[in-house]
Design a protein around this nucleic acid. Sequence first.
DNA 1: CCAATGACGTGAACAAATTCACAACGTTCC
DNA 2: GGAACGTTGTGAATTTGTTCACGTCATTGG
Lengths: 217, 217
Amino acid sequence: MNISNKVLGRLTRYRALLTEYFPKEKTHIFSHELAAMMGLSASQIRRDLMCLGYYGVPRYGYEISELVKYINEILDASKLHHVAIVGAGNLGRALMTFLESRRATLKIVAAFDEDPSKSNRMINGVPCHSMDAAEEILRREDIRIAILCVPGSEAQRVTDRLVRAGVKGIMNFAPVPIRIPVGVALEEIDVTSALERVAFFTNNRANAPKERRHADR
Amino acid sequence: MNISNKVLGRLTRYRALLTEYFPKEKTHIFSHELAAMMGLSASQIRRDLMCLGYYGVPRYGYEISELVKYINEILDASKLHHVAIVGAGNLGRALMTFLESRRATLKIVAAFDEDPSKSNRMINGVPCHSMDAAEEILRREDIRIAILCVPGSEAQRVTDRLVRAGVKGIMNFAPVPIRIPVGVALEEIDVTSALERVAFFTNNRANAPKERRHADR
DNA sequence: CCAATGACGTGAACAAATTCACAACGTTCC
DNA sequence: GGAACGTTGTGAATTTGTTCACGTCATTGG
Ligand SMILES: NC(=O)c1ccc[n+]([C@@H]2O[C@H](COP(=O)([O-])OP(=O)(O)OC[C@H]3O[C@@H](n4cnc5c(N)ncnc54)[C@H](O)[C@@H]3O)[C@@H](O)[C@H]2O)c1
Ligand SMILES: NC(=O)c1ccc[n+]([C@@H]2O[C@H](COP(=O)([O-])OP(=O)(O)OC[C@H]3O[C@@H](n4cnc5c(N)ncnc54)[C@H](O)[C@@H]3O)[C@@H](O)[C@H]2O)c1
């Protein structure tokens, strides 16, 4: 089974919902319950769960602890990732504290910034280095994932440097598309674009996206 | 022509690229040039531009200023939106400064926070109010769009309140899906999920997504 | 003047994602 | 015991999104 990113994205959210925002006393869940919580259709939930290799039982639904175990197995195939934040500005610093308390398998081990006043010290519990040290530290700490929080004008140049230093996955917050070689994973988060989309659907009485709840029949 | 959100999202990014990160001296652009910059195929660019009602001319390409004008026309049909940030924590504050310098048609006019130490004062140039005042100020300032930066555990409750106060579009940063009535636009930005997706494709030599450059023939 | 060029717009083919629809099957209840 | 129920897994249909392939047309150059 070749898992698509769309499915992957939903699986991560199912997991977050079930492990963080779900009453502990419930042990089982039906596709339509999860669907209602996620704002999706029940059949889509069932489709997504099909790629896990774990099967629910009719009338009982899915056992939550098992479900989470199977999602973990797919998602966290490699146990721990070292992650770097590049650009310790407002966003970079917010992400340091935010991500510290999230997945145990994703650990922020370093930050980088070219501004001397921000480097060579701890920021929000993360050691922040100068860009000069980047290549060496990325290799020493075996950092394969970077979160890019530098200005748009710097984004491509910094990306090229990260990739040359062996980074294999990048999450880009700069509001400009970056180009990477094949074999490197990229996720672009464009906040401005997202806000403009919301604004568009807020004007136009056009049918907004975002699937609504939906009984199975 | 009914414009899909996928197309819409790309149009916003074409505009950003052309207006902010593009050499001023160029007056025209070919579909394959834009494609290379965006990491998409030329035919997809042409398809997207078809819904604008503006046509390029063969051999000259698209005139950039005209192109931008037509995109503006679609995207900013209503001239100005008042936006509120709800939750003036690390992320909320970062967004205030970030968005201040972005689109002129999207103006942050208020923030809200239930923490008394954060309300009834200016933060990063934005007047921050207590949640008690929310309904009144949302209506008074005619705020139809809200950016939700409260903890996940509060997200649904706060959302319901915003919607009751007339908000028609929400951008949600809390890592939990929220439910809204039809007629309200929603954009969910789940940073954790995005990072987990990058991590997944960084392990698995699986073919990462994110379309690559691509000549037209 | 005419052929070659090179880019555009678009119908049609293709691919991906979602939804529908239903067989299968424990469970409950009479 | 057997009928009715409610939920799962999945093939098929549908919808949505992307790419291909080619007709068109202004320009260029012989
Ligand atoms: N602040 C937000 O809420 C927000 C939201 C979405 C996207 N973004 C984007 O994220 C990026 C960072 O935003 P920010 O608000 O933190 O900006 P910022 O100006 O506060 O921080 C940028 C940081 O990057 C550092 N930097 C600049 N050039 C560098 C280089 N070549 N190498 C290493 N470090 C470098 C700067 O010293 C600074 O510390 C920007 O591209 C912005 O558009 C920000
Ligand atoms: N910090 C980040 O980089 C980041 C990134 C992605 C997503 N998020 C998410 O965004 C949200 C905010 O993150 P943060 O880092 O700013 O957290 P934070 O704790 O710094 O800020 C949360 C703010 O919300 C306020 N608040 C709490 N309950 C409220 C309520 N009912 N009404 C109004 N205000 C309320 C708090 O007083 C606080 O100021 C969280 O859901 C977080 O998961 C944060």
